[in-house]
Design a binder for these strands. Sequence first.
RNA 1: GCGCGGUUAGCUCAGUUGGUAGAGCGUCCCCUUGACGUGGGGAAGGCCGGGGGUUCAAAUCCCUCACCGCGCACCA
Length: 730
Amino acid sequence: MKEDMPDINPKLLSPYNPKETEDRIYKLWEESGFFNPDTCIEKGITKADAEPFSIVLPPPNVTGTLHIGHASMLVIEDIMVRFARMQGKRTLWIPGTDHAAIATQSKVEKIIEKEEGKRKSDLGREEFLKRVEKFAQESHDTIVSQIKKMGASIDWSREAFTLDEKRSLAVRTAFKQMYDDGLIYRGHRIVNWDPKGQTVISDDEIVYKEEKTKFYYLKYGPFTIGTARPETKFGDKYVVMHPDDARYSKYKHGDKLIVEWINGPIDATIIKDESIDMEFGTGVMTITPWHSAIDFEIAERHNLDKEQIIDKYGKLLPIAGDFAGMKIKDARAKIIERLEEKGLVEKTEDYTHNIATAERTEAVIEPQIMNQWFINVNKPIPARNNKTLKELMLDPVSNEQIDILPENFKKVYFNWVENLRDWCISRQIWYGHRIPVWYKNEEIYCGIEAPKEAGWIQDEDTLDTWFSSGLWTFSTLGWPEQTKDLADYHPTTILETGYDIIFFWVARMILMSQYLLGEIPFKTVYLHGLVRDAQGRKMSKSLGNIIDPLDVSAKYGADAVRMSLVIGTGPGNDSKMSEDKIKAYKNYANKLWNITRFVLSSTENIEYDEKFDSWTDKDRALIEERNSIMKTITKEMEEYKFYLVGDKIYQYTWARFADVIIEESKPILQGDNTEDKNSRAQFLLETLREIITVLHPFMPFVTEEIWSMLPIKNKNLLMVTPWPIDNKNA
RNA sequence: GCGCGGUUAGCUCAGUUGGUAGAGCGUCCCCUUGACGUGGGGAAGGCCGGGGGUUCAAAUCCCUCACCGCGCACCA
């Protein structure tokens, strides 16, 4: 039966085969050079003065492989980028990876411990770093090939890494400028210490977990104090209450008394402070300034002594007397035993509270007072109209220089910035940007390069990974050098990223760009959600519900995976993923294939005329209908409503074009009326062409493949073919 | 505690400025040898979370309650 169609591309005779197609097409794109806007200009595809469209890829961590969430991000961004390119914009998408300091280091530590039974201290800093770098390189290579598989039309010639030479220079330059402006300082402050990771972490790297524990009421002289942490109480010599608390009015601020305590009598001092909640417990507490942020603040206010009770490894110090050297967990019960013996335990209750744990190591955070590096977010900056970093972060969002989609995240953003405390940027890990500060005797030197004279020793610490990520929109464009790229493409057009890193990353990019460049890093922030499984659960190894983007792409084609990741995924919302959904879009790719076969075979003896004008009334009506849909689609593309567009094209192709229009066309094409026949044939060809064109950002592989088979004269690759609708000049 | 979402067909979700409820998957029936069974036609199935209000008209706007989810802050 197929002999009747001798001129049809033989590929069309069998079902669409993504496996055979995708790698070949990607290679075609890469070889064309069109991922690079400079090439597009050189070859006359894009005008040199065209409107720029630029976007940076949120650099995946070099901790392993990409997951479905990365795939979703790649797809949304690739749709933006392909659409912009087809609209004739000077389109730049910059790829890169993130060294992810603490995440990568702890991953490699785990591997080395598992495979060789060694710790990083057994290897030494230099050797350990070599191992991390090797691991990072391998991860990088995997990630790059995965990005290509998904069809990302990204400019590989501009690839960056947060820890490469150029980005390191950017980091040191930024650090030095902040240091010189007095925004970066070193000081003894209460910080979040991770006893397992042996490093400080920022407030945002903390995860609160619910814990059931005991709450003890202890006799402290004439008072009863409540605590869940008796092991910190050894040095407690201040007893604090609210100044308005009538129950304790006979005690005056500064009164001294001697109380019997864990290891004997203690000189206690009465402190009155308004931060005390009279309703909670007995309204009296003792404080441990070294190991509690709240207590630290009280101590600062009243200029009280601070004493360390717990060491870096979570063990008790000599102040604990008999308990010295014990771990917190073991000590707690023993201390209570002792207090019981002394008759100091009044009662014990069950208690549920949230404890701070480290995001990476899951260890319980122990607040400690330590000498660390901080960024001052409240200091006026003369070069920026005396605005503080906080204000520099707030301004562009409140005055709408920067749009956030969906808008409700603005509120979340404001709330976070307003409550922001100084950002602790030093980390006691090895992998990362070393702090560009050197010491010699009492002297301190901060510079972009090491001092030339001998005897200077560099600070041991590295920087929080988000410090370098904060520079990403401009460090990738060549800053601190004043490059052409920087002038052409910064501020970037849009930042597309997950809502879970709005604080970590989005806020810090705004901070860095506003401060260092005096301009916003991007005009729009598009926040995507989490990709969950069909039941709405998070994907995790333990649930066994992980969908690997590469697996499903191999099985159903990257186009099908792309469609299923976009449709039903508005900004800010989590999306759900299932193989059934992917399967449906694989069928769609095949449907397009079959439509193409029909249209090409049934119009074989008719020459496609792009300027055809003798439409029948019926076809004129169909064109009008199609144009109106295309207009809507274009408008929604411009509004970033890809989830609507994808579905609209799908519906139009299948339910309208295939099921109705093509069915109606069969008798027309087989009939005797030449005018009707010709008009309808032209309509089918033109409509197929338009469908394939507007679908290209969503399903680039199958559309590019079909495009290559359409009877169009002088055509270029579909990826650089102009978008068919221009709403502005319509 | 403060804030933000969500609640629409069995499941997962759309529903643009208020105008007679939609899709995918699933279920049931039927059809089909020239584009496609990865198909076609049809059907069942929804007081659009509860209550109240505005309006000629509300899934859509306002108020309120309930439940689910998330973020931030956390009390010793």
